[in-house]
Amino acid sequence: MQALTNRGKAVNRAPMTWAERLYLPSIFKGMAITFSHIFKKQPTIRYPEQTRPFSPVFRGLHVLNRDEEGRERCTACGLCAVACPAEAITMEAAERQNGEEHLYREEKYAAKYEINMLRCIFCGLCEEACPKDAIYLSETFAPANYARKGFIYGKEELLIPNPVTEKELLATAQGH
């Protein structure tokens, strides 16, 4: 048969010589190999203490953005939900009442905004669809949870800290 690649290796099917059938030399060779691994550098990263930098194109957990005054940017237009191939996003819109201007940037806002992280495939289409720059994919990922319910993220989980009232929180979240 024509070799497809040049990496193929012919198997030696010659009968074993006496020395080979002793197996001991090859056993010792194998043991020497394993022993040498004691002194190799461990590639392990002790995760919670150490982390590896994400790649620039990494798409992690979603966050709902606020503007610089701390108001939610989302107007519950539903474009993200439409764009989502996994149908992970649901929302309910509500009208901004008086006195809530400092909370919501537009007259309409998302009263309920839920992303099912078990369905989400982190494709980033919601991010692209959003006309208001309200939803972004961050550089973290979803922590483990005991229940399925816990993977349905609501606004509380998604919204970033308010840059006006919770300055410190925002700073830690941004990794400063």
Binding site: H37, I38, K40, K41, Q42, T44, R46
Partner: peptide
């Protein structure tokens, strides 16, 4: 773990 270049239980 050590033989497999890992830290093992720690």
């Amino acid at each position: 773990a050590v033989l497999q270049d890992r830290p093992g239980p720690n």
